[in-house]
Structure formats: C-alpha cells, structure tokens
C-alpha cells in the first residue's frame, strides 16, 4: 500500500483536547478564587474581577489581595514545573527525571537552610523580614547550583554525566543542610520544614510582578526549543547527526528549566510531583512525541493539577490549610498509579 498525500498528515484532534484543557484551567481558576475559608459565588468573583460592584466590600479585598495572587501563583507554578519536567525527561531520556534532577531544589533548600538556621548564629538582624529573606536565599541558592550545572554542561559531552553531577550537587547540599539541622534549635528546624512543605499563598502582588515575567520568559523559551527537543528523543548521537548543536540546545534547555523551576522554588518552596507526573499524564492523553503539541499540553496539565490541589489544600469552608506538597502527592500518586496499571506500561508512551 502506498502512503497517500494528505490523509496521514491530518491529526488535528489534539487541538480539541487542548481546548478542553484550556476550559478546565479557566473553570478551576474561577473555582479556586471562589472557594476558601469564605465561599464567594463564582458569579460574584467574575464581577469583582471585572471591576463591578459585588456583594460585600470585604470580598473585593479577599479576591484582589489574597486569592488572585495565590491562584495566579498556582497557575504559573503548575505550568512552569510541568514544562521544565518535560524538558528534563526528554533531555536525559529518563522517565524519572523532573525539574529538580539538576539540583535546583537542593540549592534552594541550602540557601533557605543557611538563612533560617545559620542566621541565628550571625545575630537577630534577619528577623525583620524573614519571608523576603527566604525568597532571596532560595533564589541565590538555586541560581548558584544552576550556574555550576550550566558551566559543567558546557564542558561535558554526554547527558548522563550531567545527570550524575546534578545528583552529586544535590547530595552535597543536603549534607550541609543536615549539619545545619544538627546544630539548630527546634523552632528554626520547624521554620525550615515549613518552607519545604511548599506554599502558594505566600506570594504578594508585588512579588508576582517578578515571578510572572520570569515564568513567561521560561515558557516562551521552551516553545522555541520544541524542534531540538523532538530530535533529542532519538538520543544525542542521532540529534547531532541531524544538525542539533548539542551544547547550545542543552544550554538553552537548562536555562529554560532554571528560570521556570528556580523561580517557582524560590517563591513557593520545592513543590514535588507536578513536574514528574504531568508529562507522563499528558503523554497518555496526547499520544504523540511532538513537543510542539506536548509543551502546551503539559503547561495546561500542570496548571490544572496545581489549581485543583490548591482547592483541596485550603479545605473549603475551614480555616486550616494543608501543605501543598503533601496534597499534590496525596492526590496525584493514586491517579498516576491507576493510569499506569490501566495502560499496563508507561515506558511505551515515554
């Protein structure tokens, strides 16, 4: 049988699925704004967002000052982590890779640990603005690990070496954190632990002004990398033979991942699971290897997962908020296990 011209190129149903995901994102976003310790009807939320008069005066304040920054943070963080996870899985051809394989979160936790636990040794000067300082420390920590990894990536030839070096950086960082913990007071250790639980609610509107452009830049860069990412699916040697400049592509992929995962970790703490699982879930939903289709899919998928987890984490109707990191895994792990068992084998779709 001869392959005939137009019919085999027509596979547009992914656009429909993507549209479905987009609608889900919008719906969950609205739901996320309306649910919380005080339930605000979605219709009123829409009015408030449009700048119209709605219900009580306090609602305006709640939406604009608290819930909108938090929902936006969830949206951005979910997209960013899933997108960097997909890039890492493709770059290293490893289904277990995620945004943090190169030691980004370890670097950030080292930075935070130094501020929270070693800070007291230097004196009480940091008590003034702990939140801002933690963000600064996490940023510096993840940025310096990433700088090291990028420098190394320009030297080494193959990805596996890079992966191992990333793991080693991670071990080094956690060793230092352990030593710090050993010499710290209980309160400081708790403050550090709370950071590791992750949090979406800590971002203020001012901080979003920084987070938003960084994440958008990282996501945009990723879209430009779809072509080399596709070639890298065949392995580095094939990619090279097709004209991919390995060093340049690897540098840009790591740069995009750093912007995405680094900034999110700095503001929200190390949010696990999303970056690892969403690419797999997306591949099950979109049976393609084409990153031009997968990248938008994981961005929407990540946003959906994190918005949904955040709704559950704030336990609608109560004052209590669960740590987001626990909820993502608690909700996500069974879903992934169920999908894998149903499809028998995830390595086929990877």
């Amino acid at each position: 049988m001869q392959a005939s011209a137009p019919d085999i190129w027509q596979r547009k149903n992914w656009l429909g699925k993507l549209l479905g995901l987009g609608i889900a994102v919008a719906g969950l976003f609205l739901l996320n704004l309306s649910l919380g310790s005080v339930a605000i009807p979605p219709g009123q939320v829409a009015k408030i967002l449009l700048g119209l008069e709605a219900g009580q005066e306090a609602w305006h304040h709640i939406i604009w000052e608290f819930r909108l920054p938090k929902a936006l943070t969830a949206l951005l963080a979910g997209s960013a982590l899933a997108c960097s996870g997909l890039q890492m899985q493709t770059l290293f051809r490893n289904p277990l890779a995620g945004p943090f394989v190169l030691g980004i979160s370890s670097g950030a936790s080292l930075g935070v640990a130094l501020v929270v636990m070693a800070g007291s040794l230097l004196g009480g000067w940091l008590l003034a603005d702990v939140q801002g300082l933690i963000i600064l420390a996490a940023t510096i920590g993840s940025a310096s690990v990433l700088l090291l990894v990028v420098l190394v990536s320009m030297k080494v030839r193959d990805g596996m070496t890079l992966l191992i070096i990333g793991l080693m950086f991670g071990s080094l960082a956690s060793a230092v954190v352990s030593i710090l913990q050993f010499f710290s007071e209980a309160e400081q250790i708790q403050a550090y632990l709370i950071w590791t639980f992750g949090s979406l609610g800590g971002t203020t509107r001012e901080e979003l002004r920084l987070l938003l452009p960084i994440v958008l830049a990282g996501l945009l860069l990723a879209q430009f990398l779809a072509k080399p990412l596709n070639a890298l699916l065949l392995g580095e040697r094939y990619a090279e033979s097709m004209g991919v400049s390995l060093k340049k592509s690897r540098f840009l992929i790591i740069l995009s991942t750093s912007l995405l995962a680094g900034s999110v970790t700095a503001y929200c703490g190390p949010i696990a699971f999303v970056g690892l699982a969403v690419p797999h879930l997306s591949r099950l939903l979109f049976p393609t290897a084409d990153h031009r289709k997968l990248l938008p899919a994981v961005m929407f998928g990540g946003a959906i997962l994190l918005l949904a987890c955040d709704i559950l984490a704030q336990l609608p109707g109560s004052e209590k908020v669960l740590p987001i990191n626990a909820v993502t895994s608690l909700l996500g792990a069974p879903v992934v296990i169920w999908l894998i068992v149903r499809r028998r084998n995830i390595s086929k779709s990877f």
Binding site: I8, W9, R93, F224, A226, K227, N230, A231, L233, L234, G235, M242, G243, V244, R283, P287, T288, A289, D290, R292, S347, K348, S349, F350
Partner: peptide, 24 residues
Amino acid sequence: LSAGNMNVLELVALGRYPHTGWGG
C-alpha cells in the same frame, strides 16, 4: 531508540530537521 510515543511518520519527518526552520 526508546521514543515509544513516536509514530513512524513523526520519525521519518524528523529526517527533514536540517531543512526546516526554527519551528520545525
């Protein structure tokens, strides 16, 4: 190769890599 989700058409189309623009 370990690119399971890729189909034959996508694989062969990757051969055009050096001839296509940045978007592929």
